[in-house]
């Protein structure tokens, strides 16, 4: 019995340490307390709304978010804009639709059911506008990077003067958290770049945290539901396990053998 627990913990340790070992090769990431971590982790609603603002005013000029729809902004577990607000957000974008009955494509204001409008028509256009580098789609970006939210949060604040022994080409910047330290994206954030509606001071650190929170939600829109269900499921399983344990003891007490 004890050995079984031991074995489980050893195996889990080995598995998890293996998957972490890739991240460990790189610089130590900046830490901050994420509200969505832990057993009961939930998103900070205000931070998500601010994060959306940073995304749409700063990131969205180059980065698409093609798996999200405007309706997601009003859904539970997300930024939870009111439906009116989400409709207004959607309507502020021009969406190409069609063909109409004349066979022509036309533009119209966005609706809740529309996907987020992409900044470029295709990957080639995105590359052409960004010196050959493709700004990755941000829908699942947090899950697509080894360090996850800590990596994104650090990267946004990791811009520095290049050390004298590092030479940078035109349009390449030095970032101490980037793999290989060279990045094609100029430092996207600077203090006061956006003006938060709720009066929060828009420091680079604050904006990094908000937009990273928003990216975590966009990658895992059902994270809150998952945490809530997980807690219930595990409590249920533990209670059932205890009950079954005593039933087992009772049943096996009929034989003179140890369980």
């Amino acid at each position: 019995m004890k050995n079984l627990f031991k074995l489980f913990s050893i195996i889990i340790f080995i598995i998890t340490s293996n998957s972490y070992s890739f991240a460990a090769e790189k610089a130590e990431y900046l830490k901050t307390d994420w509200s969505f971590k832990g057993l009961f982790g939930k998103f900070d609603r205000a931070s998500l709304q601010r994060g959306y603002q940073v995304y749409t005013e700063v990131c969205a000029s180059c980065h698409s978010m093609k798996y999200l729809s405007y309706r997601n902004l009003a859904e539970p577990g997300g930024p939870e804009f009111s439906e009116v607000q989400a409709k207004a957000i959607a309507a502020s974008f021009e969406v190409t639709d069609g063909p109409n009955s004349d066979g022509e494509m036309f533009t119209r204001p966005g609706k809740l059911s529309d996907k987020f409008v992409m900044p470029y028509d295709n990957v080639k256009a995105a590359q052409a506008a960004n010196g050959g580098a493709y700004p990755p789609d941000m829908s699942v970006l947090v899950k697509a990077r080894g360090g996850g939210v800590d990596y994104i949060y650090s990267l946004l604040q990791g811009y520095e003067e290049a050390p004298s022994n590092v030479s940078l080409d035109d349009g390449v910047y030095y970032n101490k958290y980037m793999y290989g330290n060279k990045i094609r994206m100029a430092a996207p954030l600077s203090d006061g770049l956006v003006e938060y509606g709720d009066g929060t001071n828009a420091t680079v650190e604050q904006m990094s945290k908000d937009v990273t929170t928003f990216l975590m939600w966009s990658a895992e829109p059902h994270l809150e539901a998952r945490h809530q269900m997980g807690f219930k499921a595990i409590v249920y399983l533990i209670i059932l396990t205890i009950l079954v344990y005593f039933s087992m003891k009772k049943i096996w007490s009929r034989v003179e053998s140890e369980v």
């Binding site: 079984l4 489980f8 889990i12 598995i15 998890t16 998957s19 057993l39 899950k143 697509a144 990077r145 080894g146 996850g148 998952r226 945490h227 269900m229 997980g230 807690f231 499921a233 595990i234 399983l237 533990i238 059932l240 396990t241 079954v244 344990y245 039933s247 087992m248 049943i251 096996w252 369980v259």
Partner: peptide, 28 residues
């Protein structure tokens, strides 16, 4: 009943991964 008990313990570990670390075993 003994298999059932062990299975439930196993399911607790399983549930932990599914609900709290669903991507830890995969590659980013």
């Amino acid at each position: 009943i003994k298999d059932g008990f062990a299975l439930l313990m196993f399911m607790i570990v399983f549930a932990f991964f599914v609900f709290y670390a669903p991507n830890i075993l995969g590659h980013a």
